[in-house]
Design a binder for these strands. Sequence first.
DNA 1: GACCGGCCAG
DNA 2: CTGGCCGGTC
Lengths: 254, 254
Amino acid sequence: MFEARLSQGSLLKKILEAVKELVTDANFDCSETGIALQAMDNSHVALVSVLLRAEGFDPYRCDRNMPLGVNLNSLNKILKCAGNEDIITLKADDSGDTLGLIFESPNNDRVGEYELKLMDIDQEHLGIPDTEYEAIVRMPSSEFQRICRDLAVISESVTFNVEKEGIKFTSSGEFGTGAVTLKPHTDIDNEEASTSIELTQSVTLTFSLKYLTLFSKSTPLSDQVTLFLSDNVPLLVEYKMDDSAFIRYYLAPR
Amino acid sequence: MFEARLSQGSLLKKILEAVKELVTDANFDCSETGIALQAMDNSHVALVSVLLRAEGFDPYRCDRNMPLGVNLNSLNKILKCAGNEDIITLKADDSGDTLGLIFESPNNDRVGEYELKLMDIDQEHLGIPDTEYEAIVRMPSSEFQRICRDLAVISESVTFNVEKEGIKFTSSGEFGTGAVTLKPHTDIDNEEASTSIELTQSVTLTFSLKYLTLFSKSTPLSDQVTLFLSDNVPLLVEYKMDDSAFIRYYLAPR
DNA sequence: GACCGGCCAG
DNA sequence: CTGGCCGGTC
């Protein structure tokens, strides 16, 4: 028996928006500690990892580990039937062949009940090594999205150059070149507009803008994004919702 | 060496929006006095003339005349990477093979640096004769845009009939006819909403609405537009931004 | 069906 | 001024 009630249902809706273009089918691995989703993207270039800890739900109950194999496109269609203010409850019985979704409107005068057929998905479970990164950049997620969108005009790839003084994003294409530099900056009135850089070593790496742009669909989930970089190691792009949830993307450098 | 800093960068963004559908490639003729662009539209029916005087920049420096041949579509893409509040600096070194653009955010924690490859464009320099016009109509630019949009429903062309008492725009098409009359009107509280007509002789001329509609993309540049008309002479449609900049369109009558 | 532009709301 | 939504065009 699995049951998880999420008072801020829009969180789940946004997560699906942030993942569905990258992955078509994936397991929701439900356990006592929460719900995890981990999958390579369809072209096996990027990795997505979502964690929703049990503490983020109320109540949360999961008697035994269950991998719920979901077609994300179908799930997304069903989630579009939930209002943004709805409370969403996920349910699965031990047979594990359907996922139940209940959408309750805030004033409880409307209840939607949906069932999604589940599927068996080969669990290619991916150990992600814990890395000490050489550079950690925290910046407004909207800024990151803007930079990806802007530089995509110039080229298909972007080079990140992180120094103590700032992070510089550079692209070069057929009709010209572009570069955006962000300086560390603390806005006390507006913490979410701040940019910070920690590094043990300056780093220069190049990535596909197509994937970064897909990652930046997570912008509505968090005001800030954190980039973790090391030479010859996949970039980690992390959106933390609060202490009980995150979405992480990994992308190998070019 | 050419360098021009424009504190209101959105001006340049809007100018490109107002020109790019008419002209694909053009020279930015940079000289001591400012930046001029003059080009026939792609079908050689209309003429666009933009002038940005040196006084509108701070600082402005141009050591020698340089025609910077630009693909306006590429330039427009790059300008979309500038924020609406950004300060824009244009730069070209004496080789003149790239145009540099620097976008500085208002609080200076974000800098975009772009380079656009330049091209050689045959300078068909167009002498525009100074004309004494028979009729000069000044009106709200939004009104002009609205009239073009409205009458385009009726026909592909519009007839301007200017009398002392008013200007009448008339179209006639397969399913009906339309006419809009504007009377001179001075709104003291709101100068920009006024309409005025000066004439030495009444004038009746017919023009392509397609081009007038393209001209009216300049509406965001100025609250007022001025129409200069004479029999058998191209219409001049002028948007003056302030004393240091204008965009003018010329269109031969049908 | 996808992309771009215009309009409306926060 | 920015972001999201809707409509139109390619």
